[in-house]
Simulated scan of single mutants.
Amino acid sequence: MFPSPNATVLIVPGLRDHVVRHWQTLLHADLLAARQKVATVPPLDHDKLSCAARLVALDKALLAIDGPVLLVCHSAGVMIAVHWARQRYPGMPQDKVIGALLATPADLETPLPAGYPDRVSLESGGWLPIPREPLPFPTILAASRNDPLASYERAAGMARDWGSELVDLGKVGHLNPAAGFGPWPGATNLLARLQRRH
């Protein structure tokens, strides 16, 4: 089930930006094939660890879209959306973002596995602390029971603080190609649920 075509789905990737076999990349193609309006926040050429630069990129992508938007965020993309909501949403038309799917948020406040930015880099990049205020639009947070980047308990706490509906995905790792995803068919159903809530 796809969301109503009157809304544009805007993909907000994490720090690794665009990965060919990632579910967000595949979702973009599926939505295009279904004649759904869809866009993706483009990758950064510079300042890749700057939260402020990521917020500007999200702002630009939103301003280029006419009509309501559903955000689809993964990993650090969730944190981009949450920081954006706190810092920049007040200056945006209040009916612009009508909901957000927040999939397997990266818990940037706890030590991340090797190959990910360390706490000093995240602090200097403006990512910390994680905002905990309720989000100003409907959200669904989809959490994994064995995510190496966030425990289920921490993700559930974020959902509670943000006022998000919590969806338990079971043991799906970080919901990325390294965990065996690939397509994530459940994303479109959650998006349709979000739009019905709006």
Rank of each mutant, 00 (worst) to 15 (best):
M1S: 12
F2H: 12
P3D: 11
A7C: 15
L10F: 04
V12L: 10
G14P: 01
R16K: 13
R16S: 15
H18D: 14
H22P: 07
H22E: 08
Q24K: 08
L26F: 00
H28L: 12
A29I: 00
D30W: 03
D30H: 09
D30A: 15
Q36V: 07
A39R: 14
A39G: 13
T40N: 02
L44I: 07
H46S: 12
S50T: 04
C51F: 00
L55F: 00
L62C: 07
L63E: 13
G67T: 08
G67H: 04
L70H: 05
L70M: 14
L70D: 10
L71V: 04
V72E: 06
H74K: 12
S75F: 03
A76C: 15
V78G: 06
V78N: 13
W84K: 06
R86E: 14
Q87C: 14
Y89I: 02
Y89H: 14
M92T: 06
G99C: 08
L102D: 07
L102C: 05
A106M: 14
L108D: 08
L108I: 13
P113D: 06
G115E: 10
Y116M: 15
P117T: 03
P117R: 07
D118S: 04
D118E: 09
L122A: 11
E123K: 05
S124Y: 00
L128N: 08
L128I: 06
P129M: 08
I130K: 00
P131H: 01
P138N: 09
A143S: 15
R145I: 01
P148D: 10
P148A: 09
L149A: 11
A155C: 05
A156W: 01
A159M: 05
R160Q: 11
G163I: 08
L166K: 05
V167G: 07
D168I: 15
D168S: 13
L169Y: 01
V172T: 11
H174T: 02
L175A: 15
A178N: 08
F181L: 14
G182D: 13
P183W: 09
T188P: 06
T188Q: 10
A192Y: 00
A192N: 13
R193C: 12
R196C: 03
H198W: 11
